[in-house]
Nucleic acid binder design. Structure first.
Lengths: 236, 236
DNA sequence: CGAGCGATTGAAAAGACTCAACCACCGTGG
DNA sequence: CCACGGTGGTTGAGTCTTTTCAATCGCTCG
């Protein structure tokens, strides 16, 4: 058995308020809820693959997902890390195009799949929701412009500092972590976020650890000195 | 006098069909046309600046525009080059946010400014247009994921080859160029597209010229061997 | 227990950047 | 008309970051 079905009610969903579906009226919500199917994915399962066509959208109930693109040499570039409450796959669906990227679970994750027709119907009926979607896309576009710029201009060290701060947010969000969020990724994934070789990444992590900016236990990374990292990241 | 006003009718506009406004019904088009103001910008004039707030959108009637973001060290990263028919500035406006990037003319350009209220009204009324806008944003998101990946993974040489091919398209589009498009950019701008130092860019251009892949006359670059460049760019 | 993956370290090589100087072209003002 | 200043283009040399390759280690899983 590759995956397990579960029942989740949108109305009772713990991540509802933090998701893009948060603002839906009860009518729209019911429509989204009606035909969706929720599945528990195991760690490192591919949810969708670059080049295939979307049949609907996924809403993350729990777990983290990496969105990545495979480069010419087979190396993955991670574009973003999604967490509970995030919705994925709607862009390619709306543009009636193939997925430009792939999605894979980083840990066990529960995803709700909403069929294309239901999603589109709600989008057509609920102009507030349309607005929400458009805003979300705009924000993503802006943050990708940021990433592009730092990838082009900043040395690896600065990018790593920035990535650690970003990941602290992502990993601190859900758990009952009292500010002690632990980043849990393979060194390779981390390198593919920062855009560098795994070895380089390991060496820099080592430096940061020596400087007491972070702590590591196995693969887990705990960010200690946000302020100093912000300075290193050259964020203005 | 910094800029000159001119009159252009959307209904007669030469770039109408190639723009996102192409599919508008005559009613919507009239609404877009009504309150717009068209201005001739000189070369190297800033149209809007990162961090300011949009009051409407711009439609490019003629000329090329660079969209860029200024990095921490004051170096610009060019995100895209827009040409006649393209619309710019709607994302920040729709997300009710500041511009995440700046826009500057690369040559004399005629831009039509459409006030926010008119644009939003058409967007609300015309669901086809909403669809068009969403698609355009999705496509941009996909192509930015591409850029991100090649910036992170490909050496400068490959990125330059890719950029030249892309620019050939951009510069070949309008003119009555019979396949002999000439790229006309400063070396610095070109370096800021590729994401490298100006000197590095110049050296690589020199190599390409030696290999008869391109021709240069002053700052102008003519792409000769598309196929070979595609291979160098490692496009799959 | 052996295979294999992920993490780590070392050493060498390569790619790209910086700095500095110089050139070429162009518009301006004397 | 020509010297001048400035911008953009080019070249060289040295340096440094980052990558690559190779090898080792630790741990988990079957």
């Amino acid at each position: 058995m590759r995956s397990r079905r579960v029942d989740i009610e949108c109305g009772l969903c713990s991540v509802r308020d933090s998701s893009l579906f948060g603002g839906l009226c009860s009518e729209s919500r019911e429509e989204i809820n009606r035909n969706k199917s929720c599945t528990v994915y195991k760690k490192n399962q591919v949810v969708f693959h670059e080049g295939t066509r979307p049949l609907g959208v996924f809403c993350i109930n729990s777990g983290k997902i990496k969105i990545y693109k495979t480069g010419a040499e087979g190396k993955d570039q991670i574009i973003q890390i999604l967490k509970a409450g995030d919705i994925m796959g709607y862009r390619a669906m709306l543009s009636e195009d193939q997925y430009p990227v792939s999605a894979e679970t980083l840990e066990e994750a529960t995803l709700c799949f909403i069929p294309k027709s239901d999603f589109l119907h709600v989008l057509r009926e609920d102009s507030n929701f349309t607005q929400t979607i458009i805003k979300s896309m705009s924000r993503d576009l802006g943050s990708m412009a940021d990433s592009l710029t730092s990838l082009a201009q900043k040395p690896v060290r600065e990018r790593l500092a920035g990535a650690l701060l970003m990941l602290k947010e992502t990993y601190g969000a859900d758990d009952q972590s009292n500010g002690t969020a632990e980043i849990n990724l393979t060194r390779e994934d981390l390198a593919n976020i920062v855009g560098t070789a795994t070895e380089t990444l390991i060496r820099l992590l080592h430096d940061f650890k020596e400087d007491k900016l972070i702590e590591t236990q196995g693969r887990k990374i705990k960010v200690l000195e946000d302020q100093k990292l912000i300075r290193i990241a050259n964020l203005y």
